[in-house]
């Protein structure tokens, strides 16, 4: 029995090591390639593990000529603004759903759930026309349609969190004469802070990664976010892998930092109520 357990354990460790290798290898290889010279990437040295003549050329080109910094700036603006207003709007409605009794509550919940299942393509065409009519294409107004991909998830996670907070505190606040809004922001919000923070991170990542709306509504390079800007490095006839790998390395760093700092919150957000993304 012990021997069998030992074998199982060894197998488990082997699987985990293989898994970790599979997860990390693509990043590692991209990182290595980003320091190679063009000659090495497209020559006999394509599969070298250690670059022959390490160079930072790819990084300087991508940073100073291809506008990656501008894309990172756009992504920060768009993702931050989306996170702030979505959290505000979602907190209000999640609080109402969790605390008040009203007609059509289940309809509202069902609607929010249904919206999170919509194919994103279905809103893109009409929103494109709307933005053309209003002259909002190529602007930061794009944060508004980002609500379709982030708001349902945010409301869903927040409702789960609010449901876990005991009612007693709010009731005593009410006795002391606090209005619903005061109760929400003075009593519930601080208690729900971890949940709100978790939601904010999930919303931020979703907004940061958005692709379809940006590529259709903001065709102007000046407004490209990271995912779109990076996809444009891949042109039909010449793919400059050195630059692609350098750009990939640069844009992975913010994500890496967020994940390492907030992994517990992210996992909590992902798994609460079986919510996606």
């Amino acid at each position: 029995m012990d021997q069998q357990n030992g074998k199982l354990k060894a197998l488990g460790i082997a699987v985990i090591v293989a898994f970790l290798f599979a997860m990390v290898f693509p990043f590692l290889w991209i990182f290595i390639t980003s320091f190679k010279t063009t000659g090495e990437i497209y020559g006999a040295g394509a599969f070298n593990i250690i670059p022959e003549n390490p160079t930072l050329n790819n990084y300087t080109t991508v940073l100073f000529e291809k506008g990656i910094m501008n894309a990172i700036k756009n992504s920060f603006i768009v993702a931050s603004v989306t996170t702030i207003y979505i959290i505000f709007v979602a907190t209000l409605s999640a609080y109402a759903i969790s605390r008040f009794e009203f007609r059509g509550k289940n309809v509202l919940l069902g609607l929010i759930l249904a919206v999170s299942m919509f194919p994103q393509m279905i809103v893109t065409g009409p929103v494109y026309n709307l933005f053309m009519d209003l002259g909002w294409t190529n602007s930061y107004m794009i944060v508004l349609p980002y609500s379709t991909i982030t708001l349902p998830t945010a409301v869903w996670i927040l409702v789960t969190h609010f449901n876990q907070i005991p009612l007693a505190l709010e009731e005593s606040a009410k006795i002391d004469g606090a209005s619903p809004l005061q109760t929400l922001f003075r009593i519930v919000f601080p208690l729900a802070a971890p949940g709100v923070f978790t939601t904010a991170i999930i919303v931020f990542i979703a907004a940061w990664n958005e692709f379809l709306l940006t590529i259709t509504l903001n065709a102007d390079r000046a407004y490209h976010t990271v995912p779109v800007a990076i996809s444009f490095l891949r042109t039909q006839f010449e793919i400059l892998w050195g630059q692609v790998t350098a750009a990939t390395t640069i844009v992975t760093i913010p994500t890496l930092i967020i994940v390492l700092l907030f992994q517990k919150q992210i996992v909590a957000g992902l798994t609460s109520g079986g919510v996606k993304e």
Binding site: I16, F19, L20, M23, V24, P26, F27, W29, I30, T33, I205, W208, N209, F211, V226, P227, V228, I230, S231, L233, R234, I239, W241, V244, T245, T248, V251, T252, T255, L256, I258, V259, L260, Q263, I266, V267
Partner: peptide, 25 residues
């Protein structure tokens, strides 16, 4: 903890970036 952090990175990076990365591989 290590495995969780490692697992989250592929999920967290933009799909477009992952696609481009695999395009090279």
């Amino acid at each position: 903890g290590l495995i969780r952090a490692t697992s989250l990175i592929p999920w967290a990076i933009p799909t477009a970036v992952a696609a481009l990365m695999w395009g090279y591989l």
